[in-house]
């Protein structure tokens, strides 16, 4: 691709570069996401969180499921895994348990994580598995053409609900808290600074952490519901969002056009999987217990 840069009325330092570039496989650009889609915006926030957290990028692995957000793994210049639909979390569980020094981030969409992958989500949260789960919630199945998801709000029109959704939707932050997540936050793609800060926090926090990011899908969700384009959605987020840190997650359900409660809702310390494993085995087996050394040393 011809990477033309505009004639600019001032000098750009020769060593200037886009801060996201070291984190991305630039040889794979342009990405597949539509104009006005917010997934790329969340990736910006993630890369800045990685930068600010001073994480050793060789020790960060990213695991995605299937769908538009599932493609994030393929663009991140990290050890990256594009798994099967809904199974990013159990794959990540195996990866983390085998190699605990890895920081394992699960980056996927709402349909992937909460419909086909819903069971895995609640169990990983129950175990307080040390995974950082970032859910880009565009309220629909975008990759397949905008069908109803378990997050699609009532009255919305979708490809499989042509007369309007009537099933109640999941409130993801309440679900995550109830299942045992150590950290639960929600932002929108309008809240880039706050989102980057939240992502940085979870990179530094132990245990199962969950961030929901509302993101526009202008091609399939907003268009079908006459809600404008990506920019209109961003303006809607700006106008409809209310920051309420610590709000009871039960009060944070989303509706088609109502208030969007954003903020950090849960930040608690629960013992993690390894802590509990080691405590139980030491109690039962005493000196006979050998701490896991799963990575095959000489093979």
């Amino acid at each position: 691709m011809n990477e033309t840069t505009l004639e600019v009325p001032y000098e750009i330092p020769v060593d200037a570069h886009n801060p996201v570039e070291p984190f991305l496989r630039m040889d794979r650009m342009p990405h597949i996401w539509c104009p006005g889609c917010g997934i790329g915006t969340t990736v910006n926030c993630f890369t800045r969180a990685l930068l600010d957290s001073k994480a050793d990028l060789d020790k960060v692995a990213i695991v995605s499921g299937i769908g538009c957000t599932g493609r994030v793994a393929g663009y991140a210049s990290l050890d990256s895994f594009h798994t099967t639909h809904g199974r990013a979390i159990p794959f990540a569980t195996g990866l983390k348990l085998a190699n605990p020094e890895l920081q394992v981030v699960v980056y996927s969409g709402d349909g992937d994580l909460f419909a086909i992958g819903g069971n895995h989500f609640i169990h990983a949260a129950r175990r307080n598995m040390d995974l950082k789960v970032i859910c880009v919630n565009n309220l629909t199945y975008a990759m397949t053409g905008g069908q109803t998801a378990p997050t699609t709000p009532s009255h919305v029109i979708s490809a499989t609900s042509p007369y309007g959704v009537f099933e109640p939707a999941f409130n993801l932050v309440a679900l995550a808290e109830a299942a045992g997540a150590s950290y639960v936050a929600r932002w929108t793609t309008y809240h880039v600074k706050q989102l980057a800060r939240s992502m940085e926090e979870v990179l530094k926090k132990k245990g199962f952490c969950f961030i929901e990011v509302l993101s526009p899908c202008p091609t399939l969700y907003q268009r079908r519901n006459k809600m404008g384009d990506g920019l209109d959605t961003m303006k809607f987020y700006k106008q409809a969002s209310k920051v309420r840190h610590g709000a009871p997650t039960s009060e944070c359900a989303l509706t088609k056009s109502g208030e969007i409660v954003v903020g950090k809702f849960v930040d608690r310390d629960r013992p993690g999987y390894f802590e509990l494993l080691n405590a139980q085995m030491t109690e039962t087996l005493g000196e006979r217990y050998a701490e896991p050394e799963v990575v095959c040393g000489n093979c």
Partner: peptide
């Protein structure tokens, strides 16, 4: 395109918003 270059603070908010990694801002050293 740039219409008021002199106003740029180099805050990089444009870079954080851009879903296509097509723009970034920075402060002069």
């Amino acid at each position: 395109h740039i219409v008021s270059a002199e106003k740029c603070s180099g805050c990089d908010l444009c870079g954080m918003y851009c879903p296509d990694f097509a723009i970034f801002g920075a402060r002069y050293a």
